[in-house]
Write a protein that binds this DNA or RNA. Structure first.
Lengths: 141, 141
DNA sequence: CGGAATCCACCATGATACTG
DNA sequence: CAGTATCATGGTGGATTCCG
């Protein structure tokens, strides 16, 4: 069956087992990518090294708090590196590590899918919402 | 530069612009995939049609509440379909739609990456945490 | 400039109990 | 069996303020 991708294979090892972020690699990754800013920063950094302030400005309206925290997490996981220049005023540059760059490819596949099927999803959603008996809690009101 | 994947391309259209889930396809997708249960259910369904109860049992310890809600969202987005058999007791089967099956492939790429680099990430994390001056708030304590 | 610290609001999720 | 309803809560993220 070509209907059954190797995905089910990987998940049979982790899904049924423990699946919490502590032991499951998939959750380990998706939990981070799934948060509000990580992938945005990943992509911003894909363009090349970037300073803290520039990063903040290139993103819509992230707070310094979240920018700092997300960058720290990326650094902690070895996806990005931080370089401090002891100048005055201070200057800090972030860049993707090789590991960080390697995630761009699979992430890219997902982004492609997203762009490609975005309309189909929105249409399905509109169709679903047109039936008043069906409610989801995630509906915009 | 082979360092610059088409990712940056897609993001230049959506990242700098509005990026909220309402207008950005990437967030539109990742917000759903990023939640706690969606991809687990996706994979469980990849194995074939499944009843509500069986789905619940095949997942670690999801509550009925979350199972229902996540399934509804998948149905709403057209990734899964719901079929009710008016028997006694009631029987409801869920299955992936063609659209739902199509996401398994890019998701697979990400899962592969996750499994492949899981150790590297954990090691980086351990190294980072070994330095007491560095704290992340996401550290286990 | 690049953070750290604090306070607070909200939303996602869990637990429990009830229903057709 | 397959949900719905209600309540409780913990974590995520925003705003603000202070520091080197």
């Amino acid at each position: 069956m070509t209907d059954q991708p190797p995905l089910a294979d990987a998940f049979s090892r982790w899904g049924s087992a423990g699946l919490d972020a502590g032991t499951c690699p998939i959750r380990n990754v998706l939990d981070r990518l799934g948060d509000k800013w990580t992938m945005l920063i990943l992509v911003a950094l894909a363009a090349g090294p970037c300073r803290f302030g520039a990063l903040g400005r290139s993103l819509p309206d992230i707070s310094k708090r979240m920018l700092t925290q997300t960058l720290r997490d990326l650094e902690r996981d070895g996806l990005a590196t931080r370089q401090v220049f002891p100048t005055r005023p201070p200057r800090v540059e972030y860049r993707l590590s090789p590991l960080g760059r390697s995630v761009l490819q699979p992430l890219s596949a997902l982004v492609d899918w997203a762009e490609c099927h975005d309309q189909a999803i929105r249409q399905a959603r509109a169709r679903f919402d047109a039936v008043p008996s069906q409610k989801t809690a995630s509906q915009a009101e």
